[in-house]
Write a protein that binds this DNA or RNA. Structure first.
Lengths: 341, 341
DNA sequence: TTGAAAGCGCTACCAA
DNA sequence: TTGGTAGCGCTTTCAA
């Protein structure tokens, strides 16, 4: 592996290494004549700066930590992609940390994050309490929360309007003519899960419809918990309650419910309607396709990335970090699973 | 950000930095007395070696490039996870390169790979011709092919027994009583696609069954191409051909076919049977669940990672790299989509 | 078995 | 606007 160094480029261009560095990083004015020479030399020698030397000198890794509950969940996968795309555009890279939905794991990742000397962190909180990550702030590592509110003070947040999503879903079911209503909840204490349910209850209370407590199920944003809710639903349902509309707090659970309904041979969307949240690819692929409240996962990831980078830049200039809060709107996607008229 | 350096550890332990380094990397004998002191100091100061200084000095990035056609394909996602897990265990990290199934993109990634100074590369080839990657070999960067044969000489390969998978799927459909047979092919020139079809034809020829050329469709390992095949199938089918068994060269296409069959309201598995390849999660979630030839994606990724690491170590000792070829067996998973007896 | 010191490739300070 | 050069934190000779 023949490494071309900045020295060789300097010799080729007949300037000093310092000048080459200045041209490459646009860090100080250089006469256009020398600039030209340097660029030619870089081209000719196919020079690629050594990022380790760079990082060592600059004390910046150009790596951003991205802490998420579950990378195998397509929703988070999309969010990550949004973040990564922006980071890539700004010549940074992402270090993905999968906590397996455990806050203790979040704490353990702090060590990794410090060891890898990440310049900043994007956090999709795994629980009610992400206090362990405050250590990062003490180490002057900018932290931005995405998707879920980690209930930490003094950090920027990028969220979606989840309660409104709950309202959209509920109104949709009512308008499609469903008569009784149920809900498969997300994990306790997670802000998205709480808000979605809140939106559901709000509309239920406002409009003159029934909510059957037998049709409110605990869930944890996994497919399996959706299956379980689906089975219980089928056990508890009676003919005079039909048609019944179910909101699942995420698509994976919605798909689980749908699977059980299919398997039991009941009529979807005729007697049962299901709406999910997220709009993951699978929602479209399932038969019948799943109506859902589309979350801007990609945008959330991207915006969070933007915010950390901004904060890192401010820190570089010894400015204090800004605390913003961005809330994205959500959108209802009608598909077959609720299409009963 | 207070950086604890090796010097401070040395002072705390009352030894030289060299000795600390020797203890940390187990690179030369150190008296147990000093070793103890060093370990205590490391613990006390919560020292974390600076990986950039390390990489700069050692000329090793500890990063392995992983070049794949499509990260959003769950099959490759699993393969990547297998590779990453092993790399993590050996304190290496992965740089994922998504070629979007284009060989030209592979060529472009060579630059990235060189710039990032990866120590080795795992390649899931995107086409018939991955010659552009031979540049890596010239730069003494070990290269291992995974999942697909990139038709390069002198490199190690980790594959699965795809033609046998084709045989398993075909025999399964015959035994389940299907009468005519069809196939949704994978992309031209990709070794997995070629072999799977070959296995299919072999069994068709051996046993006394019909293959209807009208039921052989082009595909490209995407869900959409499966949907298209499904639509054509429905157009061309006539009652006296039933029941008909279809093999899709991967699960995504199988799911697409299944969706169209569902949508048309025909009987699956009664009149139509579908088998896929890969065993992605969605195959289980779909209704009816999709029978499939399970590929050891995780194992393939892991084994490929093992092999690169091995080759890198050999290179470090100036040994020439070994060329092995490992072929994993595959397994038929019976689910609802073919369960007609 | 140990320590001193050179140097990996880069950036940024200082002086010109 | 430029060049010389110190030094980022580490590993690895070389000498003891």
């Amino acid at each position: 592996m023949s490494e071309v160094t900045i020295i060789e480029v300097a010799e080729e261009a007949e300037v000093s290494p310092a000048t080459v560095s200045r041209v490459l990083n646009d860090t100080a004015p250089v006469s256009s004549e020398k600039e030209e020479k340097v660029k030619k030399a870089v081209e000719k020698l196919n020079y690629k700066p050594n990022k380790f030397a760079h990082a060592l000198r600059k004390q910046r890794s150009d790596i951003i930590g991205v802490v998420v509950p579950d990378v195998s969940n397509p929703y988070f996968a999309t969010l990550i992609r949004g973040a990564e795309t922006y980071l890539h555009e700004t010549n940074k890279s992402a270090l993905i940390c999968d906590t397996n939905s455990k806050t203790e794991q979040e704490g353990e990742y702090v060590n990794t994050l410090l060891r890898e000397r990440v310049d900043g962190v994007i956090l999709v909180s795994s629980g009610e309490d992400s206090k362990q990550l405050e250590v990062l702030l003490k180490n002057d590592i900018p932290l931005v929360a995405a998707d879920r509110d980690p209930h930490l003070d003094n950090i920027s947040k990028v969220l979606a309007h989840n309660s409104h999503g709950g309202e959209l879903a509920t109104n949709h079911l009512i308008e499609k003519g469903y008569k009784s209503f149920g809900f498969v909840k997300g994990p306790t204490g997670i802000s998205t899960a709480v808000s979605r349910y809140k939106g559901f209850k709000k509309v239920i209370n406002e409009r003159d419809v029934t909510i059957n407590q037998n049709f409110v199920f605990k869930g944890d944003y996994t497919y399996e918990s959706g299956r379980e809710a689906g089975r219980k639903l089928l056990e508890r349902v009676q003919d005079d309650m039909l048609p019944i509309g179910i909101i699942a707090a995420d698509d994976l659970m919605g798909l689980g419910v749908l699977w059980e309904l299919n398997s039991a041979g009941v009529k979807v969307p005729g007697d049962f309607g299901v709406v999910g949240f997220d709009d993951i690819l699978m929602a479209k692929l399932m038969y019948p396709s799943l109506s859902t409240v589309a979350m801007p996962a990609y945008q959330i990831g991207r915006e969070a990335a933007k915010l950390v980078i901004e904060n890192i830049k401010r820190a570089d200039q010894n400015l204090n970090t800004t605390k913003t809060e961005k809330v994205f709107e959500v959108e209802l996607i009608e598909r077959k699973s609720t299409n009963r008229n």
